[in-house]
Design a protein around this nucleic acid. Structure first.
Length: 178
DNA sequence: GATAAGATGTTA
DNA sequence: AACATCTTATCA
């Protein structure tokens, strides 16, 4: 078992989004560990209007401005949580949205950004958690590099719709539906 | 204080 | 295609 470290998360956001595919999201909850292979991601950077950090630090997105490797969780549509991985260096408001997991340990219900949060018990409580330590309730381990990666535009946004910043493992079977 | 929009998911 | 449901950001 090898954890992803500071060096990994400090990279360019789009690089991190692509390289997170195949890594393993791990959640300690109720004396159990849930695991899933990250198979779909999207990159968001401060420079473009679809990003929560576009207009600078707010109460919601301030975690995005910390150094790479922290967890950014937000609540949306009155009922859903979404989980992000903060990237780059402190002061840059960037993150990668984790959109789907290929479940290990027999889990299911992990195809979709809010579905995986529900299944993994990820709520606002985990906003700001350090993903680089397995003493945290949530962390990420190295995994198998995917054979083939597909690139497309991001889902569910109304600005910067043409950025090719969504990535998923080809033929995964667990990618969120369109 | 009010208002509109939102990185979704389910149902019809 | 509609809707469930409420936080967040923005404006007054």
């Amino acid at each position: 078992m090898v954890l992803l470290g500071k060096k990994f998360y400090s990279q360019d956001t789009v690089t991190v989004a692509r390289d997170l595919l195949g890594t393993i999201l791990c959640r300690r909850i109720n004396n159990k560990i849930l695991r899933g292979i990250i198979c779909e991601t999207e990159a968001y950077t401060q420079d473009e209007p679809a990003c929560h950090a576009f207009k600078g630090k707010t109460n919601r997105c301030n975690v995005m401005f910390r150094e790479g490797g922290f967890c950014y969780v937000y609540f949306i549509y009155g009922m859903h949580y979404c989980m992000n991985v903060v990237t780059e260096k402190e002061g840059r408001g960037c993150a990668v949205l984790v959109r789907a997991l290929e479940p290990l340990d027999g889990l299911t219900g992990t195809n979709g950004p809010s579905r995986l949060c529900k299944t993994f018990g990820i709520t606002k409580e985990l906003n700001g958690v350090d993903l680089r330590s397995n003493l945290s309730p949530l962390w990420i381990e190295k995994g198998e590099k995917p054979l083939e990666i597909v690139t497309s535009t991001r889902v569910g946004i109304s600005s910067a719709v043409d950025y090719p910043w969504r990535f998923y493992i080809k033929d995964s079977g667990w990618v969120s539906r369109k």
